[in-house]
Amino acid sequence: MNKIRAFESTYLFCLKILSGIIPVLGNKRPFMWFMVTSEKALKKPLFGCQMCGQCILHSTGMVCPMGCPKTLRNGPCGGVRSNGNCEIKPDMKCVWVRAWDNSTQMAVFSDSIKEIQPQLDHSLSGTSAWINDIGKKNDS
């Protein structure tokens, strides 16, 4: 199994487990602390996570869109270089070129890259994306 598929399966596994736990513990301070700490510890080294609090990794081929210097969350800008590198950082592959390539390899979420992502809520920066996401689904 390739890396992207492995990440995707891990995401699905966590989703299952946490969907049971977060509705019960989601608003407890120690649990919040635990989630923020583990998200930071795992997602930072793996994806360059910046703790925006609204994780959409599974919709972007497991490439963090916050690594884009313009923090674009809905696809590449028009400035991508002809070699696929970033307009602003010429030595870096464009985040969205990677996201597009990777998302085609995903089993479940390959079409999610087409979805419109809402405006980022900057007030959630530094909080747990899992709690925000599952908590929100539970509220609505």
Partner: peptide, 20 residues
Amino acid sequence: GVQTGDHPEAKPVFDLDSVT
């Protein structure tokens, strides 16, 4: 990006992207 222009020291906003 601000780096393209003549004020590369400016703070870029990008609160929204073109879709939002």
